[in-house]
């Protein structure tokens, strides 16, 4: 008899737990119209930053490449010439490539970088149709000369660059242009959209 009562109680407890979730707010959001706020130090697509004077921060030292546990980074250095000075020192990265398919977004490159040149942005949407398009070379990684200098991770509270002004609430609807497009690629996207609209 006792065991029957015990069983019914246990059953009731179980259903109660299930029922609780049925009345809770759903965690599923209708992506991509609604997006979930990042963790504060979310690791997304890379970006190569510049100094205030427009020079590249990257000196081609290859420390990111050797720190990378996935072997995703290729750097080939070259010497700056007085006529074509890319970075402040003697050396710059003639080639800088990241295979984003190999990348595990661990952020060790960011940590190894002696000049804070390579950073991981919050941007994670990089779907494409060809594998080859996931090899990001300098032309896509480096912040363009006219798109600022890039944003350091610690200038980005809650994973959204501070220059956006407002911190977006957990699980809010995020404007793709304002949030995830906050990197220089977002800027490009904006102009592209404008171009399309016009």
């Amino acid at each position: 008899m006792q065991s029957v009562i015990g069983g019914v109680v246990a059953l009731a407890k179980g259903f109660a737990t299930t029922l609780q979730f049925a009345f809770q707010k759903k965690p599923t959001v209708s992506y991509p119209n609604v997006k979930i706020q990042h963790a504060p130090r979310f690791h997304g697509l890379h970006e190569l930053r510049r100094y205030d004077d427009g020079k590249e921060r990257c000196i081609g030292c290859e420390l990111c490449s050797i720190a990378c546990p996935a072997n995703a980074i290729t750097v080939i250095g070259a010497e700056n010439t007085p006529e074509d000075r890319r970075s402040p020192g003697e050396r710059f990265a003639a080639r800088y490539e990241i295979d984003e398919l190999r990348c595990i977004f661990c952020g060790l490159c960011e940590e190894a970088c002696p000049t804070d040149a390579i950073v991981l942005t919050p941007r994670f949407e990089m779907a494409d149709y060809r594998r080859s398009s996931f090899i990001y070379s300098k032309d896509r990684l480096l912040v363009p000369q006219d798109a600022g200098k890039g944003t350091a991770p610690d200038e980005r509270p809650n994973g959204i660059p501070s220059d956006l002004g407002s911190v977006i609430e957990q699980k809010s609807t995020v404007d793709i242009m304002a949030g995830y497009g906050a990197t220089h690629r977002g800027e490009i996207l904006k102009t592209e959209r404008k171009g399309l609209a016009g």
Binding site: C61, E62, I66, G77
Partner: peptide, 9 residues
């Protein structure tokens, strides 16, 4: 050899 590679490469 200037800036051609790092020793570990």
């Amino acid at each position: 050899y200037r800036f051609k590679s790092r020793p570990w490469d």
